[in-house]
Amino acid sequence: MKFAAPKVLEMDTAMTLNQAGVGCDLRIHVLSGPGCERLRELGFCEQSQVRKLAGGRNLICSVCGTRLAISRELAEQVLVKAAG
């Protein structure tokens, strides 16, 4: 039990791409959901860096030098952490 604590903390700091603030540099933690296959093809992979450029009805993110517009439903399937 002693060793479990840090891991729980780590999960707590993860948030969905929708929750992240605009202009933040983020690192993708986990992808989960029906749309994640499509997201991976577009460069949304675990460990890649993302910057959220705009929120709203559809989000705009920059991944590997490309800007992508994705819907909120898809962004909900992307768990990110602040890039440190």
């Binding site: 029906p34 749309g35 499509r38 997201l39 577009l42 559809n58 705009i60 490309t66 800007r67 992508l68 517009a69 994705i70 819907s71 439903e73 898809l74």
Partner: peptide
């Protein structure tokens, strides 16, 4: 049958 979400590349 399978939900298709809005996903579009914004070219430079």
């Amino acid at each position: 049958a399978t939900a298709a979400h809005f996903l579009l590349e914004m070219p430079p």
